[in-house]
Write a protein that binds this DNA or RNA. Structure first.
Length: 275
DNA sequence: AAAAGCCCCTGGATGC
DNA sequence: TGCATCCAGGGGCTTT
């Protein structure tokens, strides 16, 4: 099976699992373990004494707003956040601890593709670099069908890769890209610009539906994804195509196929997704 | 501007 | 049983 692969729903479920509890907390200290994708960008000692105002999200980044500055947290592909009182001593894969008077926020990330980055503000060059070219939030009203269609029309790449790129719409990772295209009945290899308005509309709806449903059911769990409160996600059992190569399509029984697109695996049903 | 490829990392699966 | 090898993937970066 696979490790947890945090996409937007997993990040959002994580956020919901600790945002309320950490709000208003006073930071006592911060501990940095092995290097993550990027350096923290400040002396951890400088975080002591600051207060956590709120926890937001932009794409797959969690934004921990402090009374001075903010922390950008990315889970990469194997990252998990916990927030609890009296956590055990950090293990080999616990690479960041934020100790507060409400509990400790801990990043556990075996593959270290994740990151915790400090920025002075949202206008900080570091924040701009990481958040600057992100596409629209799929669950916001700003993700509208007309705009989506126009954005797709400018892209000749296969629609799967456009979804994954994150500059049109954020948060759709490898799992939900396949799932959304299946839900829309669109073949992943179809050039984005070739989609008619009605088909783009179907994809727009599918992206929202698949992601919203995944959030509602607690996030995907292709191995053992858990929210920051330790609850298991339940979406796993509902994958229609992802990871099901050779297995019968749940709708028509045709064997699911896998192909490679930009070094990523894509799954689809050749019958339900004809074009 | 858009597209394509590279690379970071390590646990798990596979092959000999 | 132990090794070596391959693979997964988010996404910023570089090159075309």
């Amino acid at each position: 099976m696979w490790d947890a692969m945090p996409e937007l729903p997993e990040v959002e479920v994580t956020r919901l699992g600790f945002a309320d509890r950490i709000q208003g907390a006073r930071i006592r200290s911060a501990r940095v373990g092995k290097p993550l994708r990027w350096a923290l960008g400040c002396d951890p000692a400088l975080l002591a004494g600051r207060r956590v105002l709120s926890v937001g999200r932009r794409g797959k980044y969690l934004l921990v707003a402090l009374d001075a500055g903010l922390l950008l947290v990315h889970l990469g592909m194997s990252g998990r956040l916990r927030f609890d009182r009296d956590l055990p001593a950090p293990g080999a894969h616990d690479h960041f601890d934020l100790d507060t008077d409400h509990g400790t926020l801990r990043l556990h990330d075996p593959r270290r593709f994740g990151a915790v980055v400090f920025a002075e503000s949202a206008d900080d060059p570091v924040a701009r670099k990481l958040l600057g070219r992100l596409g629209v939030e799929p669950l916001d009203d700003s993700f509208d069908a007309a705009g989506f269609f126009l954005a797709l029309r400018r892209r000749k790449s296969p629609v799967k890769q456009v979804l994954l790129a994150g500059d049109v719409v954020v948060g759709v990772g490898n799992i939900y890209a396949s799932e959304a295209l299946f839900a829309a009945g669109i073949r992943p290899t179809t050039p984005a610009a070739q989609l008619s308005r009605p088909r783009a509309d179907r994809l727009h709806t599918a992206v929202r539906t698949v992601l919203a449903r995944a959030v509602a059911t607690g996030g995907s769990t292709l191995r053992d994804f858990r929210g920051a409160d330790g609850a298991h996600g339940l979406f796993q059992q509902e994958a229609m195509v992802y990871g099901r190569e050779g297995l019968p399509c749940r709708i028509c029984g045709t064997p699911i196929r896998m192909l490679r697109q930009g070094q990523r695996s894509t799954f689809y049903c050749p019958h339900c997704q004809k074009a």
